[in-house]
Simulated scan of single mutants.
Amino acid sequence: MVLLGGGVVSLLAVAYGAGLLLNHSDVPKGTTVLGVDISGSRDEAVAKLQTAFGNRAATPLQLTVGGKPVELKPEKAGLSLDAQTTVRNAAGSDYNPVTVIGSLLGNERVADPVMPVDEEKLQVALQELAGTAGTVTEGTIKFDTGKAVAVPGKAGTTLDTGASAELVTKAFRDMVATGSAGAVELPVTTKEPAVNQAELDRAMKEFAEPAMSGIATVKAGPKSIPFGPKSLPKILSMQAVDGKLVEKYDLEALKAIYGNSFDGVLITRGTGEKTPVSPQDVAGALGKALRGKTTAERTVTIDTNPS
Score class of each variant (00 low, 15 high):
Ala165Arg: 05
Ser307Met: 10
Lys274Leu: 03
Asp250Met: 12
Val265His: 01
Thr271Asn: 15
Thr275Asn: 08
Leu12Val: 11
Ala18Gly: 13
Ala285Ile: 06
Asp160Ala: 05
Gly78Glu: 06
Leu104Gln: 10
Lys293Glu: 10
Leu236Ala: 09
Thr161Val: 12
Lys29Tyr: 09
Ala208Lys: 04
Gly102Arg: 07
Val65His: 00
Thr99Lys: 13
Gly19Phe: 07
Val70Pro: 00
Ala150Asn: 04
Val2Cys: 01
Ala211Met: 06
Thr169Asn: 09
Thr157Gly: 06
Arg269Gly: 14
Leu159Gln: 00
Glu71Lys: 03
Val282Cys: 09
Ala13Val: 14
Val9Pro: 01
Asp94Arg: 15
Asp37Thr: 07
Pro187Ser: 06
Pro28Tyr: 12
Gln50Cys: 03
Met1Cys: 07
Met115Val: 02
Thr304Glu: 08
His24Leu: 10
Thr59Val: 02
Asn23Thr: 11
Ser237Arg: 13
Thr157Ala: 09
Pro193Glu: 01
Thr217Pro: 01
Arg269Lys: 14
Gly35Thr: 06
Gly78Asp: 07
Thr161Leu: 00
Lys223Glu: 12
Ala181Leu: 03
Tyr249Asn: 08
Leu21Ser: 14
Val65Pro: 00
Ala177Phe: 02
Gly78His: 06
Lys244Ser: 11
Ser224Leu: 11
Ala58Lys: 14
Val70Tyr: 00
Arg173Asn: 11
Ala90Leu: 08
Phe227Met: 09
Gly146Asn: 10
Ala165Thr: 05
Val9Glu: 02
Ser224Asn: 10
Lys244Met: 05
Ala155Phe: 08
Lys293Cys: 02
Pro187Cys: 08
Phe53Lys: 04
Asp303Ile: 05
Arg88Val: 13
Ala111Val: 04
Gly35Phe: 08
Ala183His: 01
Asn107Gln: 14
Ile257Leu: 15
Gln123Ala: 02
Phe172Glu: 02
Ala111His: 10
Arg42Gly: 15
Ile267Asn: 03
Gly102Leu: 05
Asp94Trp: 07
Glu120Asp: 13
Val176Met: 04
Lys230Pro: 00
Asn55Pro: 03
Lys219Thr: 10
Pro193Tyr: 02
Gly182Cys: 05
Glu199Val: 06
Thr189His: 01
Ser261Cys: 02
Pro187Leu: 04
Val195Tyr: 06
Gly153Phe: 09
Glu75Val: 12
Ile38Cys: 05
Ile225Gly: 05
Phe53Ser: 09
Glu209Lys: 15
Ile235Gly: 07
Ile215Lys: 14
Leu3Glu: 14
